[in-house]
């Protein structure tokens, strides 16, 4: 009992700390998001939020389920490794609702050019042409079928 003779100020000090501690815990409970620390030093829900972004490119498997005729042609040709949307652009909306979302027409002058225009930095074994010399301005699809472009039996006229 003697030790606690003049202990009033100690208790006061302790209660200040106590109130401060409680305040800290309460504020912390409110301010720190519930999922913080779920997986590490970050908000766990941020991982789920990153996964909720909508998709624009449906993926070639989806296109192929409806356009089996194109797949039939394409899978036998040299473009078999080229995905539909690499040429046709993002078409997830079209895949969801083909009747109301029509894919845009493609400009082969731009499209084929990007992949096939001769460039020193391209791998040597990749088929390249200097389009000005090769087609003389004629659209690529007058001679090549986009989905199966190799010209096997050379048609009369072109050599």
């Amino acid at each position: 009992m003697k030790i606690f003779k003049d202990a009033g100020h100690l208790f006061r000090l302790a209660s200040v700390f106590l109130v401060g501690g409680v305040l800290f815990l309460v504020l912390r409970g409110f301010l720190v998001p519930s999922s913080f620390g779920q997986y590490g030093h970050y908000r766990g829900n941020a991982v789920k939020e990153a996964a909720t972004q909508p998709i624009s490119y449906a993926g070639h498997q989806v296109c192929e389920s409806c356009h089996a005729d194109i797949l039939e042609v394409k899978s036998k040709g040299v473009h078999k490794g080229v995905a539909c949307e690499a040429c046709h652009g993002p078409l997830a909306k079209h895949a969801d609702d083909p009747a109301s979302v029509q894919p845009a027409k493609l400009d082969t002058a731009v499209l084929c050019f990007r992949c096939h225009e001769a460039n020193l930095a391209k791998p040597k074994n990749f088929p390249q042409v200097v389009s000005a010399e090769h087609s003389g301005g004629a659209p690529c699809e007058t001679c090549h079928q986009p989905h199966s472009p190799a010209i096997v039996a050379v048609a009369g006229g072109s050599q």
């Binding site: 991982v47 990153a50 996964a51 909720t52 972004q53 909508p54 998709i55 624009s56 490119y57 993926g59 070639h60 473009h79 490794g81 080229v82 995905a83 949307e85 690499a86 992949c115 990749f126």
Partner: peptide, 18 residues
């Protein structure tokens, strides 16, 4: 992340022709 968690590949890999 929104694609790979659904079993799709990334947009860049999907569209890489080679």
């Amino acid at each position: 992340y929104h694609r790979i968690t659904k079993g799709l590949t990334t947009a860049c890999c999907e569209n890489c022709p080679t």
